[in-house]
Design a protein around this nucleic acid. Structure first.
Length: 266
DNA sequence: ATGGTCGCCGAGCGA
């Protein structure tokens, strides 16, 4: 089962690019972030016509996540537990950033798609929200570990884990994506017992998943790696490959993020 | 260099 996470940066602006990519690459499952659409205006038919089941958790203008799958999406839940409880669809969060579902291949896997708060400017209320959100995610991640079953938490984490994950780490020193508290919270997630899929397979610098639109960042390869796939031990045992599809950033009207893929023997 | 680039939607915010 080939699974990709992709911050699409506006699904309506990129529906043609998305359907072309789905047709060419044939992922079994896609976790989308920043759809920037409400559920009612999500272009689901163009995606369903390619053989995908679609589940969305949208919001007007900003944020929003979705799951696309060639397998049925079962037991769908929207919103990360532990928020204020004022979101759409009865979600626990005013901001639409989290969706879960189960797919069954040779065995079942729980899929968690997340768009972690950016947190800038830091310090400030937005950074406080980011850290609280990461604490809530850790609670959910622990519950999934306790189930001792395959699960995957993937998406735009808005965290640069280490120096080697930025072309110019010094430019990010005071940024919410790279502050020590952000990196420590990410490390705490891993230390629960998760495998960070890409780093488990590829060592060293020079691998990025985001390049800013400004300043010719793509042309200068001035990127950061902030889109991650975390696997429970039972899912990590099934990992066959993990890679970043950087080539997507060089296409016409690209997202500022590119897909990160994981291939699981499931 | 107090801008720079996008997408949301139709002003200014978020990233």
């Amino acid at each position: 089962m080939r699974i990709a996470t992709f911050n699409i940066n506006g699904v309506k602006a990129r529906i043609g690019a998305l359907t072309d990519w789905l047709s060419d690459s044939q992922p079994d499952v896609v976790l989308l972030q920043e759809i920037k659409s409400v559920d009612e205006t999500f272009p689901r038919e163009a995606i369903e016509d390619l053989g995908y089941n679609v589940e969305t958790h949208g919001q007007k203008g900003f944020n929003g996540v979705a799951l696309l799958s060639k397998y049925p999406l079962e037991d769908v839940t929207r919103g990360l537990p532990g928020g204020e409880g004022t979101g759409r669809d009865g979600a626990d969060d005013a901001e639409a950033r989290y969706i879960e579902a189960t797919v069954v291949g040779q065995q079942a896997i729980r899929l968690c798609g997340l768009y972690l708060p950016n947190g800038n400017p830091a310090p400030g209320p937005k950074y406080d929200y980011k850290l609280r959100w990461m604490d809530r995610l850790r609670t959910r991640a622990q519950d999934l570990l306790n189930a001792e079953a395959p699960a995957l938490l993937a998406g735009d984490y808005n965290v640069i884990p280490q120096d080697e994950d930025a072309a110019r780490p010094e430019a990010w020193r005071d940024d919410a994506l790279f502050l020590p508290e952000s990196r420590a919270a990410f490390r705490r997630l891993l230390n629960l017992g998760y495998t960070e899929a890409f780093r488990a397979r590829t060592r060293g610098p020079g691998h990025y998943s985001f390049w800013d639109y400004q300043g010719g960042a793509w042309d200068r390869n001035d990127g950061i790696r902030i889109d991650h796939v975390l696997l429970t031990p039972q899912a990590a045992d099934l990992m066959q490959d993990c890679w970043i599809e950087a080539e997507m950033r060089g296409r016409e009207k690209p997202s500022d993020h590119v897909p990160v893929w994981v291939d699981l023997a499931i």
